[in-house]
Simulated assay, not measured.
Amino acid sequence: MTDTTFDGIREFVAAAQSLSFTAAGLELGVTSSAVGKSVSRLEARLGVKLLHRTTRRLILTQEGETYLASCLRVLDELAETQGLLTTGQQEPIGRLRVDLPATFGRRHILPTLIEMAVRYQKLDLSVSFSERLVDIVNDGIDLVVRIGTLKDDAEIVARKLGSQCLLICATPDYLARHPAPQNRNDLLQHDCIVGWRHGTRKTWMLIDENGQTVEQEVRVKHEMGDGEMLLNMTLAGAGLAQLPTWLVQDYIERGDLVAVLERYAGAEMPIHVIWPRTRYIQPKIRMIVDELLALAQRDSIIFRPE
């Protein structure tokens, strides 16, 4: 009896990526009708609809999107393994889906990813930027960099790259109009600019008199979606903001910003690289993780090692 487990996958992937049976047929060297029949047999075997057919184009169903992500991951792993067997060298092959924090990711992670994509021509990148805690498994993301404390999750693996140190600062103009805060509770009287987070308390992380990290309530004037927006709002003189040293140090040295409440400064937030837990880590993920760990060691001012 013939095993049909993998029948139709190649045709489905080609059709799903091009959203056309005709284009898929041209790619595979068969007729569009043959592609359509292969996909139909695959759908019947799975018991789900993967593609909606219209007169103009194909549309992936939700089940189709999930199945496509799984198929692409498996095909990428096969391609990487084949490359290793035929050349004897590990090389990242296939698409890598990465999600980064907006400002930190663009400034400090993306250049390394771009350099690797140029070095390894068979590596394809899909990079997105967000501050939210993505569902790395269900969203089909291969690698995530996140700043902040992580929740326990058995489905992910995390490696710490380092930490970022936080300062509270404002422009000299703002401080000329509003007396600089002298203690933590003064933050309830100031215009504070915070990062936007849905459904979370608006607090800053400070170091108390005993050297412990504490959460301090602040009076929120403005909420911004990422670090660049926070910085721009602060430089405009709109209020106080708590920002990482890697983002504001140059402005402080030039006098554009002034650090306040320095005796409470020094709170740190961990920086992790995260990927889904599997029995076998794909070579491309392992190589990117190794590269980011090496980057963190080189740029100790940015990543602040333990």
Rank of each mutant, 00 (worst) to 15 (best):
L85K: 09
T86G: 12
T87E: 03
G88Y: 07
G88E: 13
G88Q: 09
Q89C: 12
Q89Y: 13
Q89D: 10
Q90C: 10
Q90T: 03
Q90K: 08
E91I: 03
I93T: 05
R95P: 01
R97I: 04
R97G: 00
V98W: 01
D99M: 12
P101L: 00
P101G: 08
P101D: 11
P101W: 03
A102Y: 07
G105K: 00
R107M: 09
R107A: 15
H108G: 01
P111T: 03
P111G: 06
T112R: 09
I114F: 05
I114C: 14
I114K: 13
M116V: 04
A117K: 08
A117T: 04
R119F: 06
R119K: 12
Q121W: 05
Q121D: 15
Q121S: 15
K122S: 14
K122T: 06
L123V: 02
D124W: 01
L125W: 01
S126R: 11
S126L: 10
V127F: 09
V127P: 02
V127Y: 01
S128L: 15
S128Q: 15
F129T: 04
S130G: 15
E131I: 03
E131V: 07
E131R: 10
R132P: 04
R132F: 06
R132Q: 10
L133E: 13
L133Y: 04
V134L: 12
V134H: 07
D135A: 14
I136S: 02
V137Y: 00
D139K: 05
D139M: 08
I141W: 00
L143I: 09
L143Q: 05
V144F: 04
V145H: 08
R146T: 03
I147S: 10
T149L: 13
K151P: 13
A154C: 11
A154D: 15
A154P: 15
E155M: 10
E155H: 14
E155D: 15
I156D: 01
I156Q: 11
V157M: 14
V157Q: 12
A158R: 10
R159Q: 15
G162S: 10
S163G: 13
C165F: 03
L166H: 07
L166C: 09
L166A: 07
L167G: 02
P172M: 11
Y174Q: 07
Y174T: 02
Y174G: 05
L175R: 12
H178L: 07
P179T: 11
P179A: 15
A180T: 01
P181R: 05
Q182K: 11
Q182M: 14
N183M: 08
R184V: 01
N185W: 04
L187C: 03
Q189I: 00
Q189M: 13
Q189L: 12
Q189D: 11
H190T: 06
H190Q: 12
H190V: 00
H190D: 06
D191M: 01
C192W: 05
I193Y: 06
G195A: 09
W196F: 15
R197T: 09
R197K: 13
R201K: 13
K202D: 11
T203H: 03
T203R: 05
W204Y: 04
W204D: 02
L206R: 01
L206H: 06
N210M: 12
N210C: 14
G211T: 07
G211Q: 11
Q212G: 11
T213F: 01
V214K: 10
E215F: 10
Q216N: 09
Q216H: 09
E217S: 13
E217Q: 13
E217G: 08
E217K: 13
V218F: 01
V218T: 06
